[in-house]
């Protein structure tokens, strides 16, 4: 039951893009088509979960015992950057079909603040490893969900006549705002 609540909370009530405003760049950049949005979203799920596991161990077993908590930012970004690079090489060698579909999104993920944001949030909320992994998975599932919704709307938008100055990024931000407004209706369903 608690797990169900965690998922509802992170996908709908505290959606990472629409309510917490993390990971806006891919939200605007990779939501032209549903295929691209799905690829980006699944790559993010994969990396966020991996990154959360690695940073959890680094924080609990290296930084905390040594009293180096203030180096969190520096250590996390280096872990994430090397992790992404490593995952890319690993997939290329061992799982070429998966690499074909996710590969082009991987380099884009290092500077996606959703990844680092989730890793830091898991530490700030002081979750244990199991809950941390679920938290990371639910958060990135929310990311995929918002990206897919946005792609659906934007595919429709292609056929409409938008004022020239508003076309492209401005109108998609305004639409994101309207979507966020509707997501606010979920408030109260969970913490």
């Amino acid at each position: 039951m608690e797990i169900f609540e965690l998922f509802i909370s992170l996908i709908f009530v505290n959606n990472i893009i629409l309510i917490q405003n993390l990971g806006i760049c891919p939200y605007v950049g990779c939501s032209r088509e549903k295929g691209v949005a799905f690829g980006m979203g699944s790559a993010v799920i994969f990396v966020v979960v991996m990154a959360t596991i690695c940073t959890w161990f680094a924080q609990r077993h290296i930084l905390n015992p040594l009293g180096l908590g203030y180096l969190q930012t520096l250590v996390f970004i280096l872990i994430i950057a090397s992790l992404v690079q490593f995952v890319e090489m690993f997939l290329k060698k061992l799982l070429p079909p998966l690499y074909e579909s996710l590969g082009i999104f991987l380099p884009l993920i290092t500077t996606n603040c959703a990844v680092m944001g989730t890793a830091i949030l898991v530490q700030r909320e002081n979750l244990d490893l199991g809950t941390g992994i679920l938290y990371a998975f639910a958060t990135s599932a929310g990311f995929l969900f918002a990206l897919l919704l946005m792609a659906g709307v934007r595919e429709r938008l292609e056929t409409l006549r938008v004022p020239k100055a508003m076309a492209g990024t401005p109108i998609s931000l305004v639409m994101g705002g309207i979507m966020a407004l509707s997501f606010m209706a979920f408030k109260g369903m969970a913490q």
């Binding site: 760049c25 605007v28 950049g29 380099p107 993920i109 500077t111 996606n112």
Partner: peptide, 10 residues
Amino acid sequence: QCGGCSKANL
């Protein structure tokens, strides 16, 4: 447009 400026990154 490129979704994070990180093409140059790696």
